[in-house]
Simulated scan of single mutants.
Amino acid sequence: MRAVRRTLNRVLIGLVGLVLLALGGSVLAIGLGAPAPSWWLHDGRHDVLLDESERTRWRDAGWWWPVIIAALAVLVLLCLWWLVAVVRRRRLAEVLVDTGDGEGALLRGQALEHALAEDADHLDGVQQADVRLTGRRTTPRTRVGLRLEPHVDPGTALDDLTTGVLARTRDSAGLAALPTEVRLRAVKHRAERVS
């Protein structure tokens, strides 16, 4: 699923880039004096984008400008959302593990996330653990979300996580440090009627 999304994203970015390059290049070429092709919207170098009749056609219609402004605002927001989604780094793809021989090995980030989550799931009173790796492959950071049973002391669970799970992971990967942000949430059980 992730590979399909990445491929689709790259194809869309490529298509948008080609369309913008073709339009921008055509406008530049015609502006510099090249002959306009037959399919082009305007006749030549001194033709304007919107002539006076096109600009004033809908002047008296009260709905025209609010619709145009709303459509452009939605388009800008969609473009910004897409840009943020593309630029934002979601997960760390790989971690460089020190093998002790001066070389190093690459460990898939998803495999390390899964191992950390499995290890944290086995802590006393942890119902579910979610782990996400961020940062760089030589200096990874983790974000851990723990859903705790109601009877568990959060301080004890945090201590077990840091001195046990995270310390073992840091040592086994040969990392100098493994900065971690931990979010603890209590599991809410619904009240059940006892008869």
Rank of each mutant, 00 (worst) to 15 (best):
L23E: 12
A73H: 04
L28I: 00
R59D: 12
A85V: 02
E54T: 13
G31D: 10
T99K: 08
I69D: 08
L96W: 14
P37H: 07
S53H: 15
V76H: 02
A71N: 07
L96M: 13
W65T: 13
H46W: 12
L83M: 05
W63L: 10
G44A: 02
G33E: 08
L23T: 12
G33W: 01
S53R: 04
I68G: 00
L83V: 11
V97E: 14
L78Q: 11
A29E: 12
R89V: 12
I68N: 00
L75D: 05
D60R: 13
E54I: 05
V87Y: 06
G33K: 03
L92C: 07
G33N: 12
L28Y: 15
G100Q: 12
L21K: 00
A85H: 05
V87M: 14
H46D: 14
W82P: 05
I69E: 06
S38Q: 08
R90D: 08
D51W: 01
V76A: 05
L72T: 09
G62F: 01
V87H: 09
L77S: 10
S53P: 08
V74A: 10
C79I: 09
G24S: 01
L50Q: 07
L28Q: 11
G17V: 00
L28R: 14
W82I: 12
E54L: 07
D51K: 04
A61H: 11
L32I: 10
R55A: 15
L80C: 12
D60A: 12
V27C: 07
W40I: 01
R91S: 13
W40T: 10
V87A: 13
V19T: 00
W64E: 10
R89P: 10
D51M: 04
L50I: 09
L23I: 05
V86A: 15
I69R: 10
P35G: 05
W82F: 10
P37F: 12
L77N: 08
R90S: 03
I68H: 07
V86P: 04
P66D: 10
G31Q: 05
V67Q: 07
V84T: 08
H46F: 12
P37G: 14
A36R: 09
W82Y: 05
W58L: 09
R88Y: 05
V97L: 09
T99G: 09
G17C: 03
L83P: 03
W58N: 15
S26N: 15
I30Q: 07
D98I: 00
S26M: 15
R45I: 14
A22W: 00
A36G: 11
P35E: 12
V19I: 02
G44N: 00
C79V: 08
W64C: 03
I69V: 03
A93C: 03
G25S: 02
R91P: 11
S53V: 12
S53W: 10
